[in-house]
Design a protein around this nucleic acid. Sequence first.
DNA 1: GAAATATGTCAATAACGTTGACGCAAATAG
DNA 2: CTATTTGCGTCAACGTTATTGACATATTTC
Lengths: 172, 172
Amino acid sequence: MKVRKTAGFPPASAPDDTHGDGPDFELIELFFFAYRDFVGEPDRLLEKHGFGRAHHRVLHFVNRNQGLHVAELLELLEITKQSLARVLKDLIEAGLIEQRAGETDRRQRLLFLTAEGAALAASLAEMQDARVARAKAAIGAHNRGTIVRFLSELIDPRASLLPRKATEPRQP
Amino acid sequence: MKVRKTAGFPPASAPDDTHGDGPDFELIELFFFAYRDFVGEPDRLLEKHGFGRAHHRVLHFVNRNQGLHVAELLELLEITKQSLARVLKDLIEAGLIEQRAGETDRRQRLLFLTAEGAALAASLAEMQDARVARAKAAIGAHNRGTIVRFLSELIDPRASLLPRKATEPRQP
DNA sequence: GAAATATGTCAATAACGTTGACGCAAATAG
DNA sequence: CTATTTGCGTCAACGTTATTGACATATTTC
């Protein structure tokens, strides 16, 4: 394949669409490429365990919200019960996630990471954090708030999601 | 479903992980949610046409690089020939994309949007641009460069991709 | 003319998502 | 206390997007 190559990244954004009056293609494309690479690196690690991106998301959110129950996870991910079922089953069978019955409501299945699950979640988070850290360094730590604000504004306002503080296990 | 709801978005990031020494979960999660909503809105429009996200990407990059040939598109998207084939076929059959034989190399299939294809691409781009515009307004126009820099740093450095200026059709 | 290249196509497979329906256990309403 | 609702798991069927490997055809290049 003889492709004419020239220097320059990002790829498909000419410098002159920075100030154009059409859509901000540069940002739109950067966002696409950035997200692709942001998840691509974890994907490769997950593949070695026989998991996919969906498993990553479950690991991540269980890690961040230990003790959440299935309905909460479904709301967070905005997927259906059946979509979650397969992925969750994989993770439980692999010994990365444990279920315990809720104490106040014993129908609920509270989800926790095992030590092994926490280890994988940490590895994945470190990959993404290292990437984010590089990017933060490039813009200077004082500009982190700008990124937070920007990304937050991209998100659809929702009714609100998690009821409790993220990191701590539930107090029944 | 009786879920205890409280105010507050973003969802699963406690305010106190902003300055923690672990991974920057806040940014990691914001990025996930932001991308989901960023593509979610176009997804809903595409669905009405019977297309999916893959069609969007092809429309977008053909729009931005009219006259590119198949191999270039494959490189940009980082997918395989077979993955592209179905999507491209759909778009050609729907009359949104046209192929013309390359003039210097008649094996090449140069890709162009039809008027109809350009219209859909524009609608999709406008949706995403409106969202981005809101976010830019929130941070102030002078901070756009920070976002560009940040996103660029998240991207894996590659050998380099498109050889020519993005918007203009190829000069053979 | 032979070899490499650009594209299209066939077949098989996997990951991730969907909807709809049903069953069971536990909580709650009457 | 019975009846209904809720939380969860599961079965079946299906759609979209991606993968790999192989092969056919047209065209360019050596």
